[in-house]
């Protein structure tokens, strides 16, 4: 347990330092030290509001992605789906060649400005890595173990729930971490499509040369990513520790 908590500790520490750096007073100091002209910083209330919206958008996206990605991943690793695997693999590889910015941009004319195109981009882009990760995790389970499960009389569902999923769990957690990082990054990119997230002060700051606001957004976005990742790692570690 100590080993699995270790990266979480480093990540939460980085997150906390970055969160402090996003505070108006601290960010103004940093900008001053970099020699930037003094500009009006973003108030803490506004920053927290944006962080909340960012978290809701990324969280909703992550939940959808996890549900669909893991579900589809489990489906295509069942035996009856074997003939379809090459097609699914090809599709997954092709989908990952489209960067999230491009998905956000392409969704814009269809869904308009704001949260919806970002959410769609998040889901459309996130499903395939999760699907791929799930397939990899399930296929990493040694076939002998699976056969042994069948040999002692477990049915398909029992093999899935009692053998495949527990053994694939560490890889599945890694997949979810990737998806989480992706969700937070895509939500930040969503600022380009007019979604109110922590990416908004970055994009606006770059346009208006307001370095203070840009630094605040930058630090806060990175802080959110580190803290969310650390939270996921901690939750998994706690869950493992409480299990018999």
């Amino acid at each position: 347990m100590r080993i699995s908590l270790h990266p979480a500790l480093g990540f939460s520490l980085s997150g906390l330092i970055l969160a402090i750096a996003s505070h108006p007073a601290v960010a103004s100091r940093v900008a001053d030290a970099l020699g930037e002209p003094a500009r009006r910083p973003l108030e803490t209330v506004r920053l927290l509001d944006l962080a909340g919206r960012h978290l809701i958008l990324a969280g909703t996206g992550l939940a959808l992605v996890a549900l669909l990605g893991i579900g589809l991943g489990l489906l295509v690793t069942r035996r009856f789906a074997a003939p379809w695997r090459p097609a699914v693999d090809g599709l997954a590889a092709a989908a990952q060649a489209v960067p999230p910015v491009v998905v956000v941009a392409l969704a814009l004319p269809i869904l308009g400005f704001g949260g919806p195109p970002t959410l769609l981009a998040l889901v459309a882009y996130g499903i395939m890595p999760v699907l791929r990760g799930t397939v990899g995790a399930i296929e990493g389970v040694a076939p002998e173990v699976r056969e042994a499960g069948r040999a002692i009389g477990l049915n398909r569902w029992q093999v899935l729930l009692r053998i495949e999923l527990p053994l694939a769990a560490p890889d599945l957690v890694e997949t979810l971490r990737t998806a989480l990082v992706l969700a937070i990054a895509t939500a930040a990119v969503g600022a380009l499509a007019g979604a109110a997230t922590l990416g908004t002060p970055i994009v606006a700051g770059l346009q208006n040369q307001n370095t203070v606001a840009m630094l605040q957004g930058t630090a806060a976005t990175a802080a959110l990513a580190f803290l969310a990742d650390a939270a996921l790692l901690t939750a998994v570690a706690l869950w493992r520790a409480t299990r018999p």
Binding site: A31, V181, I184, A188, I202, L206, T211, T221, A222, A225
Partner: peptide, 26 residues
Amino acid sequence: LTGVQVIPAVALLGALVAVTAGLLRA
């Protein structure tokens, strides 16, 4: 290197612009 992967690209770009500007002044 793993830590860098966690930082959203938009944020890293913003940070690097600020750092480069500071570097150029120095």
